[in-house]
Design a protein around this nucleic acid. Structure first.
Lengths: 154, 154
DNA sequence: CCTCACTGATGTAGTGATACAACGAATGTA
DNA sequence: TACATTCGTTGTATCACTACATCAGTGAGG
């Protein structure tokens, strides 16, 4: 299947371009939060609800104590909030503050804008092509595992 | 242009899937080199020739002394080699060792294999679609700037 | 030849990420 | 009730990354 290799090469090239977009979308925030810290914000953002300390550590693949320290810094920065779980007082629930949510939104918006800019350079026909192809690809790739994204989760 | 937003959303989703692929492709090497170290290897690999210490620091956007320390670790690990520039003895040229090149190749191969797996789930018609669309997108996005990739350069 | 600029390395120092051990508090169970 | 388990935090330690100041060697130009 030679066409498989050709297509794979095209995707590989496109992935580099997308990676650059992703990198640029976070770059402006890197003096506020570090990449590991941003990973936490992303997980909390997609969760949409307070998450247990332990579950966050598991999702990130780090030791619970490691996460405690990271959370300390995020709390100091005002990006997340800690609260005792009323239903189980030995658990700590971490959730995004308004500032934390805004930060994630800002990155997403920046990314979307950049992608839009690229798409604006295409013809409408090409855009339809991209829409179909990207949808098909994303579907075939399946929902990205939280664990995988946690590796970098930009 | 509502179709622009729809397409952008599709690309955004696909970018997440690709990001997961990228993350998985490096994960197995993360106990050998760190991400900043891997960035160095990628730059050297794309350069294809020895690069000056100073130029590497610039490409990475770090202080020259910072790069010296990073290079120290890479040399210790056997991933890169330092050599005095014969034409200018105050310059140090850094180049990949065979092991360093193999490491980068391994990551690339892993990435390509994963993409191929995803594409194998598509129909030949869809693959042609993906080939065209990804090529068009990558072209419109332009060559990723070294500086951008250097941010993470996974 | 002498001065000046450049290059890379080192000394020093601070921050972040990480893990392991231990501890106290809360919860679950026999 | 007594014991075991779970959970988060803290103490301790290590390592990577980063920058600034400094220094010695090198090269270029007057």
């Amino acid at each position: 299947m030679p066409e498989l290799d050709t297509s794979a090469a095209a995707v590989l090239t496109a992935s580099r371009a997308l990676l650059a977009v992703v990198a640029r979308s976070i770059a402006p925030e890197l003096d506020r939060v570090t990449v590991p810290q941003f990973r936490v914000l992303v997980i909390l953002s997609t969760a949409g609800a307070p998450v247990r300390n332990r579950d966050l550590a598991d999702a990130l693949g780090v030791h619970p104590s490691t996460f405690t320290r990271n959370a300390d810094r995020l709390v100091s920065g005002g990006w997340v909030r800690r609260a005792e779980n009323p239903e189980n007082r030995r658990e700590t629930l971490v959730s995004l503050t308004a500032a934390g949510r805004r930060l994630v939104d800002r990155v997403t918006a920046r990314r979307r804008d950049e992608i839009r800019e690229v798409l604006a350079r295409l013809t409408p026909a090409q855009r339809r092509l991209v829409l179909e192809a990207m949808t098909a690809f994303a579907h075939a790739a399946g929902e990205p595992d939280v664990g995988d994204l946690a590796e970098f989760s930009l």
